[in-house]
Simulated scan of single mutants.
Amino acid sequence: MRAAKHMTGNLFLVGPMGAGKTTVGRALARHLQKTFIDADQELERHTGVRIPVIFELEGEEGFRRREADLLRELVSRRDIVLATGGGAVLREENRAALAANGIVIYLKASVDDLWARTRHDRNRPLLQTADPRAKLAELLQQRDPLYREIADIVVTSGQQSVHQVVREIEQKLAALAAAPTAHANTHG
């Protein structure tokens, strides 16, 4: 199974908002000469409106439904690096689609790092609360087991540079490819 997943060439980045999925994904795709896709940007392009507007008009459930429909289409592409939305793992169908169609890389970060990266971003509907840092901690606690459940590789995207994170991912991908029958998870 691992060998088949490796042949598709798809790499899917999961993790909380602010973990660096888009930044790392763009650099990783450029480095590996793959096509980069940001699921949230693609959803905005498909709908013609920003994500906060979707949340406002359809609620989180409406947004998650649209996200699931889009993910089904995106994971069928080949040779891509896909940065998923932070909550994409909430639906079982999304986790199954990601796990079955590529190598899943969990970009892990501390609440402090996530807060430092997202605190001024008004384009994050779930953080528009009285205590956004506490909300980040709550979301991370809820979602971390789901990220780990489908992750083939876990990489911390804390204080290191994007180049260092890409290099670590590349090393773990090489180790995964060298031992396709070994246990899938390569945690770091």
Results as ranks from 00 to 15, higher is better:
residue 182 A to H: 06
residue 25 G to V: 00
residue 28 L to F: 13
residue 109 A to D: 04
residue 126 L to F: 11
residue 177 A to P: 05
residue 9 G to E: 04
residue 24 V to F: 02
residue 122 R to G: 02
residue 121 D to N: 04
residue 133 R to S: 04
residue 88 A to L: 05
residue 30 R to S: 08
residue 188 G to Y: 12
residue 171 Q to E: 14
residue 89 V to W: 09
residue 54 I to L: 12
residue 71 L to T: 10
residue 154 V to D: 04
residue 168 E to S: 09
residue 111 V to R: 01
residue 178 A to K: 08
residue 7 M to F: 13
residue 62 G to E: 07
residue 15 G to C: 07
residue 159 Q to F: 09
residue 56 E to K: 12
residue 55 F to Y: 08
residue 129 T to G: 01
residue 154 V to Y: 08
residue 177 A to I: 05
residue 144 D to R: 09
residue 152 D to C: 02
residue 107 L to Y: 14
residue 57 L to F: 11
residue 80 I to S: 05
residue 138 E to A: 11
residue 67 E to P: 00
residue 3 A to F: 14
residue 99 A to S: 15
residue 120 H to V: 06
residue 56 E to F: 10
residue 174 A to D: 15
residue 30 R to A: 14
residue 154 V to H: 07
residue 14 V to I: 03
residue 21 K to G: 01
residue 175 A to K: 06
residue 77 R to G: 14
residue 131 D to M: 03
residue 165 V to T: 13
residue 166 V to Q: 02
residue 132 P to Q: 08
residue 94 N to E: 04
residue 78 R to H: 12
residue 142 Q to L: 14
residue 37 I to S: 07
residue 81 V to H: 03
residue 76 S to A: 15
residue 143 R to W: 05
residue 151 A to R: 00
residue 132 P to E: 04
residue 158 G to W: 07
residue 153 I to D: 11
residue 135 K to P: 03
residue 139 L to Y: 02
residue 5 K to M: 12
residue 41 Q to V: 10
residue 21 K to A: 00
residue 2 R to K: 11
residue 149 E to R: 11
residue 21 K to I: 00
residue 105 I to C: 05
residue 125 P to H: 04
residue 126 L to A: 11
residue 13 L to S: 00
residue 29 A to T: 11
residue 147 Y to T: 02
residue 143 R to N: 01
residue 54 I to S: 13
residue 11 L to N: 03
residue 119 R to A: 14
residue 141 Q to E: 11
residue 137 A to K: 03
residue 84 T to A: 10
residue 22 T to K: 03
residue 183 H to T: 14
residue 160 Q to G: 13
residue 42 E to R: 08
residue 68 A to K: 07
residue 28 L to V: 08
residue 140 L to M: 05
residue 8 T to M: 07
residue 31 H to Q: 15
residue 105 I to V: 15
residue 20 G to W: 00
residue 157 S to R: 02
residue 64 R to S: 12
residue 67 E to H: 08
residue 8 T to P: 01
residue 125 P to Y: 05
residue 60 E to A: 06
residue 35 T to M: 13
residue 154 V to M: 07
residue 122 R to F: 11
residue 171 Q to W: 05
residue 115 W to M: 05
residue 16 P to L: 08
residue 54 I to A: 13
residue 97 A to G: 07
residue 118 T to V: 10
residue 17 M to N: 03
residue 132 P to G: 03
residue 43 L to Y: 05
residue 67 E to T: 04
residue 88 A to H: 03
residue 140 L to C: 02
residue 170 E to S: 14
residue 94 N to A: 01
residue 64 R to Y: 12
residue 70 L to H: 13
residue 45 R to T: 09
residue 134 A to Q: 06
